Simulated scan of single mutants.
Amino acid sequence: MIKIGNIELPEFPLLLAPMEDVSDPPFRRLCKMHGADLMYSEFISSEGLIRDAIKSRKKLDIFDYERPVGIQIFGGDEEAMAMSARIVETVNPDLVDINFGCPVKKVVCKGAGAGVLKDIDLMVRLTKAVVRSTHLPVTVKTRLGWDSTSINIDEVAERLQETGIKALTIHARTRAQMYKGEADWEHISRIKQNPNIEIPIFGNGDIDSSEKALEYKQKYACDGIMIGRAAIGYPWIFNEIKHFFRTGEHLPEPTISDRLLAVKQHAEWSVEWKGERLGLVEMRQHYSNYFRGVPHFKEFRKKFLEVFTLAEMDALISETQEFYTHYQEQV
Rank of each mutant, 00 (worst) to 15 (best):
G76K: 01
G76F: 02
D77W: 10
D77C: 08
D77G: 07
D77H: 08
D77K: 14
E78P: 08
E79V: 09
E79A: 09
E79M: 08
A80T: 06
A80F: 12
M81I: 13
M81V: 04
M81R: 08
M81G: 10
A82I: 10
M83C: 07
M83L: 15
M83R: 14
M83N: 14
M83S: 14
M83F: 06
S84M: 03
S84H: 04
A85N: 07
A85D: 09
R86Q: 15
R86E: 15
R86V: 06
R86A: 15
I87V: 15
I87H: 08
I87E: 12
V88R: 11
V88K: 10
V88I: 14
E89R: 03
E89D: 15
T90K: 15
T90S: 14
V91P: 11
N92T: 05
N92G: 03
P93G: 10
V96E: 07
D97Q: 06
I98T: 04
I98M: 07
I98L: 15
I98G: 02
I98D: 06
N99F: 00
N99W: 02
F100V: 02
F100G: 00
G101K: 00
C102D: 00
C102A: 04
C102K: 00
P103V: 06
V104L: 04
V104G: 00
V104K: 10
K105F: 02
K106C: 01
V108L: 08
V108I: 12
V108C: 00
C109Q: 11
K110V: 03
K110S: 09
G111T: 03
A112E: 05
A114S: 15
A114Q: 09
A114E: 05
G115R: 00
G115I: 07
V116Q: 02
V116Y: 01
L117S: 12
L117V: 12
K118I: 02
D119K: 10
D119A: 13
D119L: 15
D119N: 15
L122M: 15
L122T: 13
M123I: 08
M123W: 02
M123V: 06
V124Y: 13
R125I: 09
L126S: 06
T127Y: 01
T127Q: 04
K128W: 05
A129L: 08
A129S: 15
A129H: 08
V130C: 06
V130M: 11
V131F: 05
